[in-house]
Every structure is written in structure tokens, then in C-alpha cells.
């Protein structure tokens, strides 16, 4: 009876170890797979030429990633610039100003917002943000007509998508500031804003940075919602009201249509590999900073 019990223990620990290793290996396998599938294009065109070229004409074997990289950078940059102050102030309000009843109501709402499928944000962007930009905002700043499917629309939708993630993480980080520190600042006569700015945010600075890095990695990879509102034109955006074409949208739109062109698949796999590596690096960086904060 005893040996059967011990045997089960050994088998179960072995099975769980195998499953854990398999899921970790999956990430490695995906990375290797992407690198292998993108190698044909790298053997013909140098990586620097691909990254720096402007022309995207697969039929002529021209695979310039520069407009897509700039599209990704612009959309991600705009989303962070829009979402960061809003999420910081929301998190400060929730942790330093609001009553516990407000927090009890807002936290579940944030969880729901974070769990909404990105296609819903995309639809919302198409119905609300795009017409608002083309009909109201753009005419006030640019003379020529814009459809509304712009880098600004993509950045705005993405900002709203990453907002719940940012707020939740900021709330968590601000909550780690010791109560004694708040008491010490209040006891000197601090207002809540002075406490928030000079103590809470200052103490949380590494955590804020780590959260932003994590949000950037999330924003970099976001596909569907961005694809629905960005305009999908392979050009380097010159203003907020230009269309753009980020890397994830490029892959999602074209994979499956490239069977007839030999290097097309390799080019898309290279785009995926670049995204994979960048997101991996950003995640790692964020985790290293957060670990330091915890220590």
C-alpha cells in the first residue's frame, strides 16, 4: 500500500516536471522555428538592408521593413504617451485618494476591461475613434482629407487597450510603498498630492519604469485592434494623421497569400522573429527591474 502511494508520488512529480519543461521548450522551439523559416531571406539579403529599406514590393523581391518598423514604433509610442499619464493618475487616485468602496467597484471593472477581446477594441475604434478623427480632429489640424484610419487612431485604441494593465500594475506597485512611509510624510503635514509626487511616485520609480517596459512589449505585439484602425499602408508616417502599417498587422494580413513568392514567407517569418525577440527582451528587462524592486 505504501509503495503504491510513493510510486504515484514519483509518477505525478515526473509528469508535472515534463509538462513544465514542455511549455518552456515551446517558447524556445517557437524562436528556433521562426529563425529557421526566416533564414532563406537572410541568405539573399542582409539583415541591415531589410531593416533599413523603404520599398515593400514582394513581387519584385523588395522587402523593406523600415515603414513597418516605424509604424510599430509610432503606434506603440503614441499609445504609451497617451496611456501613461492617465494610468498613473488613475492609480494614484485609487491608492491615495479614493475610498475603499470606490476601489471595490473599480478593480473588477479594470479586470473586465483587461479581459475584453482585442477585436472589440478594434470595432469600437472603427465606430468611434476613426470617424472622430476624420470628422472632427483632423480638419482642425490638417487641410487635406484623411480617412481617420491613422497612426493616431491606432495609438489611441492601443492606449485604451493597455490602460487597464497599466493601472492594475501601478496600483500594485504603489501598494508596496510601506504604510509607515505614508504616515511619516502625512505626519510632517504633507498633502495627498505632495505624498503622491514626492514619496509614492519617487519610491515606485523603478516599478513604474518596469511596468512601462512591460506595456511596451504588450503594445508592440498587439495585432487585431491596431490592424482594424491603422490604415495598413506601407509608408513611414510623417504626421499623426497618416496611415501606417505595423509589423504584427503585416504578418496577420499577408500570411497565407504568399505561397507563390519564394522569399515572401521568409520575410514574414523574419518580421515575426524580430517581434518575438524584441518582445522577449522587453519582458526580460521588465522582470529584471521588478525583481530588483522586490529585493
Amino acid at each position: 500500500m505504501l509503495s503504491w502511494r510513493l510510486a504515484k508520488e514519483k509518477v505525478m512529480s515526473g509528469v508535472m516536471f515534463f509538462i513544465t519543461c514542455a511549455s518552456l521548450l515551446l517558447v524556445v522551439a517557437m524562436g528556433i522555428g521562426l529563425c529557421l523559416r526566416s533564414s532563406p531571406i537572410l541568405s539573399e539579403i542582409s539583415l541591415w538592408d531589410i531593416l533599413s529599406a523603404n520599398e515593400w514590393k514582394p513581387a519584385k523581391n523588395q522587402f523593406g521593413f523600415f515603414p513597418f518598423i516605424m509604424g510599430t514604433v509610432c503606434v506603440t509610442g503614441i499609445s504609451i504617451v497617451l496611456a501613461l499619464p492617465v494610468s498613473l493618475f488613475t492609480a494614484l487616485f485609487l491608492t491615495e485618494y479614493s475610498h475603499s468602496q470606490v476601489r471595490k467597484f473599480v478593480y473588477p471593472v479594470l479586470d473586465i476591461l483587461a479581459a475584453l477581446p482585442s477585436v472589440i477594441y478594434g470595432v469600437w475604434g472603427t465606430l468611434i475613434v476613426v470617424p472622430w478623427i476624420s470628422g472632427w480632429l483632423a480638419p482642425r489640424f490638417v487641410s487635406e482629407y484623411t480617412s481617420g484610419y491613422t497612426v493616431l487612431a491606432a495609438g489611441t485604441v492601443l492606449a485604451i487597450m493597455i490602460l487597464p494593465l497599466l493601472v492594475s500594475m501601478f496600483v500594485e506597485i504603489f501598494s508596496t510603498v510601506p504604510g509607515e512611509m505614508r504616515e511619516a510624510a502625512y505626519a510632517l503635514g504633507s498633502t495627498r498630492w505632495q505624498l503622491s509626487r514626492r514619496v509614492v511616485m519617487k519610491k515606485s520609480l523603478p516599478g513604474i519604469f518596469a511596468t512601462v517596459v512591460l506595456a511596451v512589449s504588450r503594445a508592440l505585439g498587439e495585432t487585431i485592434a491596431v490592424l482594424m484602425v491603422c490604415g495598413n499602408l506601407p509608408q513611414v508616417p510623417r504626421s499623426l494623421f497618416d496611415a501606417c502599417y505595423p509589423l504584427p498587422a503585416l504578418i496577420a494580413n499577408n500570411y497565407g497569400e504568399m505561397m507563390s513568392m519564394p522569399l515572401y514567407e521568409a520575410a514574414l517569418m523574419l518580421a515575426a522573429a524580430i517581434l518575438f525577440i524584441v518582445v522577449l527582451l522587453f519582458n526580460l528587462l521588465s522582470r529584471i527591474i521588478l525583481k530588483r524592486v522586490e529585493d
Partner: peptide, 14 residues
């Protein structure tokens, strides 16, 4: 609070 200072139980530098 400025007129009534506090020395905490555990030292807590800002």
C-alpha cells in the same frame, strides 16, 4: 500635523 511631530516605532526614512 506640522505642529505635532511624530517619531515612528520603526525608523522610516523617506
Amino acid at each position: 500635523r506640522r505642529r505635532i511631530g511624530l517619531v515612528p516605532q520603526r525608523p522610516c526614512p523617506l
